[in-house]
Amino acid sequence: MSAADQPSGWPLPPDGTGRCDSVPARVVDHDRPCTATAILTLRPWSRLAHRPGQAVPVHTARHPGRWRWYSPANAPRPDGTVELHVRAVPTGTVSASLVHQVRPGELLHLGPPRDTGLHLRDGDLLLVAGGTGLAPLRALVEQVAAAPDGRRVILIAATRTFTGLYDPIALDKLQQAHDWLTIVPAFSDDPQAAPAERGDALTVALRHHRPHDQVYVCGPPAMLDDARRRLPLAGVPEDRLHLPAPMAPEIPG
């Protein structure tokens, strides 16, 4: 970091939030591959001790007192940067600002990471991602890549249409680099789906499910509710089905 990036001391809580345990993080890259989705790369002033699958509370001074949970899309990196995938939801204020307003050079604040239940377990993996639910599952893939142990990993990256697949370059690089990894794009409403598979995320996942798989599902709330109902009925053992624990949408100061 340059001298201008060095904090003069532990930062004051951002605008009355009351949180003294946050870490400032500068936005070093802001890419918007889709109209409502952004990929932000942050450089915290001190290393964020996060593990793949965890969630981190994020604050922007544009909305004093408001925090939102996001899961880093990467395993810890040597340079300490953190990648967030954010979709602007229709009623969201923080998410809309992170997608449409925040720019490189701006400071965000990151709170302490929390476990969500999506930590790595033994065995082969079937990872089922809907939309930006891809982020924590991609981080798990990176964790496996850092110490390959012979397991097989299938990642279903599901969206409604091809244009909703917002991170194809990173996924293609992972696919090309690792022969133990199979990435399956799945489009539910795209008649031009080939060579991707056609169908909703869970339907496609069940085509690839093997009895010994550890199954992780991450995506919109309706998708998670559907997974809780459908997958056990389809033969996925409940002790091998892993969904993120619900997190409060807003964190009081």
Rank of each mutant, 00 (worst) to 15 (best):
F187E: 04
D200A: 14
H208F: 08
P185C: 07
L202R: 02
A177M: 06
L181D: 02
I183W: 01
P191W: 11
A170I: 10
G199C: 07
D200N: 15
S188G: 02
L206W: 00
P191M: 10
G199H: 04
H209E: 06
R210T: 07
R198G: 01
I169R: 15
A170R: 15
Q192T: 11
R198F: 12
I169C: 08
H209K: 10
W180L: 08
D190H: 05
Q175M: 03
R198K: 11
H209S: 05
A196Q: 03
P195K: 09
Q192K: 03
L202N: 06
A205K: 04
H178S: 06
L202I: 11
A177W: 00
V184D: 00
T182R: 14
P191G: 07
R198H: 14
V204S: 05
P195D: 04
H208I: 14
I169V: 15
D200Q: 14
H178F: 02
P185M: 09
V184N: 00
D179T: 14
K173L: 13
A170K: 11
A194G: 06
A170D: 10
R210Y: 06
V184F: 01
D179M: 13
A194L: 12
R207E: 06
P185N: 04
A193M: 09
S188N: 03
P195H: 09
R198I: 13
H209L: 12
I169M: 11
L171I: 07
W180R: 11
V204R: 07
D190I: 14
A186H: 02
D200C: 12
I183D: 00
H178D: 02
L171G: 02
A193T: 08
Q175E: 00
K173R: 15
A177T: 04
P185K: 07
D189S: 14
H209F: 15
L206S: 02
S188Y: 04
D200H: 15
E197T: 10
P191N: 08
Q192G: 10
D200Y: 14
A194V: 10
H178I: 01
T182S: 10
E197L: 14
A186I: 09
A186W: 05
L181S: 04
A170P: 06
L174A: 10
L181C: 07
A205W: 05
Q176R: 15
Q175Y: 06
L171Y: 04
R207G: 07
D172T: 15
I169P: 01
Q176H: 13
D172Y: 11
G199E: 05
H208V: 11
W180M: 05
T203S: 11
A201V: 07
Q175L: 01
D189T: 14
L202D: 02
T203A: 13
I183R: 01
D179H: 13
L171S: 03
D200W: 14
Q176S: 13
Q176P: 02
L174R: 02
P185W: 02
Q192C: 10
A205M: 06
G199R: 09
G199M: 09
L181Q: 00
P185Y: 05
P191K: 11
D189N: 12
A196D: 00
A205E: 03
A193Y: 09
D179L: 12
T182C: 06
V204D: 03
L181E: 03
V184W: 04
D190N: 06
F187H: 11
H178V: 01
Q192V: 07
E197C: 07
Q175P: 01
D179P: 04
D172N: 15
L206Q: 01
F187D: 01
R210M: 08
R210D: 05
T182L: 14
V184G: 00
